[in-house]
Design a protein around this nucleic acid. Structure first.
Lengths: 126, 126
DNA sequence: GCTCGTTACGTTGATCGTAAGTATC
DNA sequence: GATACTTACGATCAACGTAACGAGC
């Protein structure tokens, strides 16, 4: 199980079909199908009931979907926060001189203040 | 960023060195080093301060470590729950006949009861 | 016959190990 | 010289695309 598989699985869940998910992800439909099959084999459960023209989530599929949403959400938050840190590092000099830096992002990280105090204490870390 | 990188990163954090992490993960030390470098490049931050004989987490490293722990924890919970479902599927007949099935795992999934009711309603799904 | 999913197969890229290099103690 | 990390390079496996196939409308 990896993040790539979870992302593909989630996209299939949300779009309701593998072909639509393929378009969203700029992949081919066979690759999507193969990835879902891999997931099912690895977890030893059937994730979708293959109906004609419709995919129906099994119970295992529903459970995985909820986990996948929470996991993806955490991963995105992590990446966003690390990106903030990376950007702040690049704009380090400006931080000390400007009071508007806190407004430059729509979603300031909750770790922002913590970071600033850390920066003051250990400037050599950056 | 993927789960493999996070697992390796976490192991390095916990063991305090790349060579120890390599032993824990049954990998070679250069592979660990390479993976950490990849992570740092992808995220555009330095994760460790390379001291002599000691690795010190940077602020970015501390942040990633906390996220990595939460993400890994969720992933493990997901796998454990799906494994439960997989096992229950295999032991489907026994479920109906036995009252001890709920004790067979140390950590019964919180979704267990939900699953049982689902199983009764849609037995054909399994 | 069109749409959707699966299976088969070849190519490319990621992942890992081995070997060699650098630095600190 | 022993230990720990890095760099370089080659081999293996995973991931993806193309092509061909099967099923349902």
């Amino acid at each position: 199980m990896n993040l790539r598989q979870l992302k593909i699985f989630l996209t299939v869940c949300e779009s309701g079909s593998m072909s639509k998910a393929a378009k969203k992800l700029y992949m081919t439909q066979p690759s999507i199908s193969q990835t879902i099959s891999e997931l099912e084999q690895e977890l030893n459960v059937k994730l979708f009931e293959r109906m004609s023209k419709k995919l129906l989530l099994t119970y295992a599929g529903e459970v995985l979907k909820e986990y996948a949403k929470r996991i993806s959400s955490l991963v995105e938050e992590a990446q966003s926060t690390l990106l903030d840190i990376s950007n702040l590092k690049a704009g380090k000099l400006r931080i000390g001189a400007s009071t508007t830096v806190g407004n430059k992002d729509k979603y300031p990280s909750p770790l922002f203040n913590e970071f600033l105090s850390y920066l003051k204490e250990f400037p050599s870390q950056f």
